[in-house]
Amino acid sequence: MIPYFKNKYLQTLLQCFLFGILVLANLQCVLRPSGDLREFESYFPHENPNSLIQKGKVRVTFLGTTSILLDDGETQVLTDGFFTRPSLWKTAFSKIESDPIILASVLEKAKINRLKGIFVCHSHYDHAMDSPFVAKLTNAKLFGSNSTINVGLGAGLDMANMEEFQIGKPIKLGKFVITVLESKHTPPFRILGKTNATDPNFPNITSPLIQPVKAFAYIEGGTFDFYIQHGKNKIVIKSSTNFVMGAYDKFKADVLFLGIAQLSLQPKQFQEEFFDETIQKLNPKFIIPIHWDNFFKPLNKPLEPNLKLGDDFDANMNALLKRSAKDQIQVQLMQGFETIDLF
């Protein structure tokens, strides 16, 4: 109960003060991690092989969000390559741009020194923003939608160093064969009155996107999955928590990198269909969850789960673990810069 003040100015001031405390308390709650990684300690490998990659083997390094580095000792392939990771406040209230110092440091730490291709799953900033600059620094080729090509043009990449996706057409890089599959973005959500849904009047980035720009200038431009073969071994990278019915009918995978962002926020029927169309169809030996971390935090710090503001990491993981246990499939989480041999 607010005490009575004869001075209406003081009463209004007190009301504003108490309202401010309430807002700050709510913000502190929703800006906390949506889960506790300690609850899933047993799912982390906690081993980073330092030996040379043996012939025929494939090593993976996780670089946060959906940035996945595959390496067979001769050729490296990268998905997305989002390393700058601007803060929440900068992303929400300012223009954003790639940080060349951060990019160089990640390339060095992750030993990205024989990169041949960067594959961008869609053109939102947390996937496409850094990709053309990584391509320039490594002389790798950028593969993506027409929207991603325009991000590349805005970064000064030449068309000779980019290639627009052709669904279903295999791309050979060393011993890796990458086939792009059509997919869907995670269902739209609304936070603080704003939605990430694509405006049907502006579904693509139609001209070169020159940094710095607002985050919402990075329009989805279509979403894609990657089916990657290396000898007899098969990998699927699904960055978004959604599916195209029947897309995996003719595919199997040894390893599935599965986007789980906002999984538990979807209706139960959606969750079951999502698992049926991914885990059940592909029947992988093990699953590595991706797109679970708070990408407003820098990559040089330990990764934390997505914010309570828009996700529930604990519920996402528990839903995945329940389904994977039913299908007797191993699940393994990876920290930033953590490396394991897949095969």
Score class of each variant (00 low, 15 high):
146 N>M: 01
147 S>H: 03
157 L>S: 06
171 I>Q: 03
102 I>E: 09
118 I>G: 03
163 E>P: 03
162 M>V: 08
131 S>F: 07
132 P>E: 09
166 Q>W: 06
121 C>R: 00
169 K>F: 01
157 L>W: 07
105 S>A: 13
175 K>C: 12
109 K>A: 11
159 M>W: 10
162 M>F: 10
138 T>K: 03
124 H>R: 14
158 D>V: 14
120 V>M: 05
152 G>V: 12
182 E>D: 11
98 S>H: 05
160 A>H: 09
137 L>E: 13
102 I>H: 07
98 S>R: 01
178 I>P: 00
125 Y>Q: 08
180 V>N: 02
93 F>Q: 00
182 E>G: 10
177 V>T: 13
93 F>K: 02
181 L>H: 03
109 K>F: 09
146 N>S: 13
111 K>M: 02
99 D>E: 08
118 I>F: 04
144 G>W: 06
149 I>G: 02
154 G>N: 04
139 N>Q: 15
108 E>T: 15
142 L>S: 03
120 V>E: 02
174 G>Y: 13
144 G>A: 05
163 E>R: 11
121 C>G: 12
156 G>S: 06
98 S>G: 08
155 A>D: 04
152 G>I: 10
164 E>S: 12
128 A>Q: 01
111 K>A: 13
161 N>G: 08
92 A>F: 15
115 L>S: 07
126 D>R: 03
107 L>W: 12
163 E>F: 04
100 P>N: 09
145 S>N: 12
157 L>H: 06
179 T>I: 12
138 T>Y: 07
134 V>K: 04
95 K>P: 05
167 I>G: 03
119 F>L: 04
133 F>N: 08
174 G>V: 08
125 Y>T: 01
169 K>C: 09
95 K>A: 10
120 V>K: 00
109 K>R: 15
167 I>V: 15
183 S>V: 03
98 S>A: 14
134 V>D: 06
125 Y>W: 07
148 T>A: 05
101 I>Q: 12
131 S>M: 05
125 Y>V: 07
130 D>I: 11
100 P>S: 12
90 K>G: 13
119 F>N: 01
128 A>K: 02
121 C>P: 06
91 T>P: 01
154 G>P: 11
132 P>A: 14
129 M>G: 06
134 V>A: 04
94 S>N: 09
116 K>H: 13
117 G>Y: 01
134 V>I: 15
125 Y>E: 04
126 D>T: 14
140 A>M: 13
115 L>R: 10
93 F>E: 00
162 M>C: 13
97 E>K: 14
163 E>L: 11
175 K>N: 15
147 S>M: 08
147 S>R: 01
120 V>L: 05
178 I>S: 00
100 P>A: 06
170 P>F: 15
92 A>I: 13
96 I>V: 15
160 A>G: 08
103 L>V: 12
149 I>Q: 02
134 V>Q: 07
117 G>D: 09
100 P>E: 09
96 I>F: 11
96 I>Q: 03
138 T>E: 03
117 G>L: 04
165 F>N: 00
159 M>K: 14
124 H>S: 08
113 N>F: 09
120 V>P: 06
182 E>F: 06
179 T>M: 10
94 S>R: 10
123 S>K: 01
126 D>H: 05
184 K>E: 14
166 Q>N: 14
157 L>Y: 09
137 L>A: 15
113 N>P: 00
168 G>H: 09
